[in-house]
Design a protein around this nucleic acid. Structure first.
Length: 261
DNA sequence: AACGGTACCAACCGCGAATAC
DNA sequence: AGTATTCGCGGTTGGTACCGT
């Protein structure tokens, strides 16, 4: 197979790397557009990325150790998604590597949780979508996180969001997006306002082909990444929280479109 | 052996900040 | 001061390797 077929999406070939190394030696790691002019088919940006993420001899390419993972999680708790900042305390690790590895760790933990929860739910007969809420006490914003059991289900959830948005009779603009892990569907009301919440039964999701769902507790960082924001008055928030805590919530309660099929 | 699903990670994109002119 | 260019960052996509069936 020739290289153009082998690397359809811009993967770097050894001979390109060699050339880039030469050029960086000649010009230094700057003036990337000038460097790119001498490398056919590569932008300055692409050259810079290749150098800083892969070719720079200072890069540590060894697998992350457990100790590094612990430090990474601790740093993320302090700094959030400031990958460049976090990378500074990991000599030889790039921000991209740090970011990727954090997602690997989160995905691994999520899988572990998922396995535990699916076992528990199977024994308890639970079959609803993951739903978790947090409340910002300052402005009474309710943040809800919804999570599908796997990547394919997130696709269904996403499709559902599109259909729901078309069919719902809401004056508010909602946007949907899939998460980094392809396991959840984010919905965002850009006005952050909703006069009244209406129920959205998860069976609607299932009617679109979604599988069995689980009761799962997302980590706080997942919550940040996978959220929708709905403005509510405090009493609604309290009721919702109490309801959720007592596990009475058997439906996703966020868009208010009801069953659409 | 073939196939499908999953995990990992390299590479790309858009955007804002910094710098040069 | 205004505009163009370059750089850096964070989010996202898609290719590859691996594993289970």
């Amino acid at each position: 197979m020739d290289d153009s077929k082998k690397y359809p999406r811009g993967h770097w070939m050894a001979r390109e790397d060699e050339k880039l190394l030469q050029l960086v030696e000649e010009f230094g790691p700057q003036n990337w557009n000038s460097i790119a002019e001498k490398l056919q088919g590569r932008s300055g940006k692409s050259c810079r990325l290749r150098w800083f993420n892969q070719l720079d001899p200072r890069i540590n390419k060894r697998p992350f150790t457990e100790e590094e993972e612990e430090r990474l999680l601790a740093a993320h708790r302090v700094h959030g998604n400031k990958w460049a900042l976090i990378a500074r305390v990991f000599p030889g690790r790039t921000d991209n590597a740090i970011k990727n590895h954090w997602h690997v760790v989160m995905a691994r933990r999520q899988r572990e949780n998922s396995r535990l929860c699916s076992k528990r739910n199977a024994s308890q007969g639970h079959d609803f979508l993951s739903h978790r809420t947090t409340v910002n006490s300052t402005n009474h914003l309710l943040t809800s996180s919804f999570q599908a059991p796997d990547r394919g289900d997130a696709g269904k959830l996403f499709e559902f969001g599109s259909v729901a948005r078309e069919r719902m009779n809401s004056p508010l603009p909602w946007s949907f997006s899939r998460s980094l892990t392809h396991r959840s569907c984010d919905c965002t009301n850009i006005h952050g306002q909703m006069a009244r919440r209406r129920p959205l039964h998860w069976s609607t999701y299932r009617s679109l082909g979604g599988g069995a769902c689980r009761d799962e507790t997302a980590s706080s960082s997942e919550m940040v990444r996978q959220n929708s924001t709905i403005s509510m008055n405090p009493s609604d928030v309290e009721r919702d929280e109490a309801s959720f805590k007592s596990k009475e919530v058997r439906f996703i309660d966020f868009l208010g479109v009801g069953i659409i099929s």
